[in-house]
């Protein structure tokens, strides 16, 4: 499986919509959708930093590794 993104869980916990997060992070909703659906091949540290800052969490809360 590899690395999976659990952004949905974190968004639900913070009661935030994807649209709102995309606006706050400064990425397009399309790109956020790519990230949420695990289609992304890479994530910039700056984007990850912003997401963590806005969702008040650690990268480990968003990213997970499944064998």
């Amino acid at each position: 499986m590899g690395i999976i993104v659990n952004l949905d869980v974190m968004l639900a916990k913070r009661k935030m919509s994807s649209q709102e997060l995309a606006e706050k992070v400064g990425i397009t909703p399309t790109n956020l959708s790519i990230l949420k659906t695990n289609k992304a091949k890479a994530i910039r540290f700056s984007t990850l930093e912003k997401i963590c800052e806005i969702l008040e969490c650690k990268p480990g809360d968003i990213l997970d590794y499944i064998e």
């Binding site: 990425i27 956020l32 790519i34 990230l35 992304a40 091949k41 890479a42 994530i43 910039r44």
Partner: peptide, 8 residues
């Protein structure tokens, strides 16, 4: 290009 497009 694909890798670049799929980098968020």
């Amino acid at each position: 290009k694909e890798e670049n497009d799929l980098t968020v």
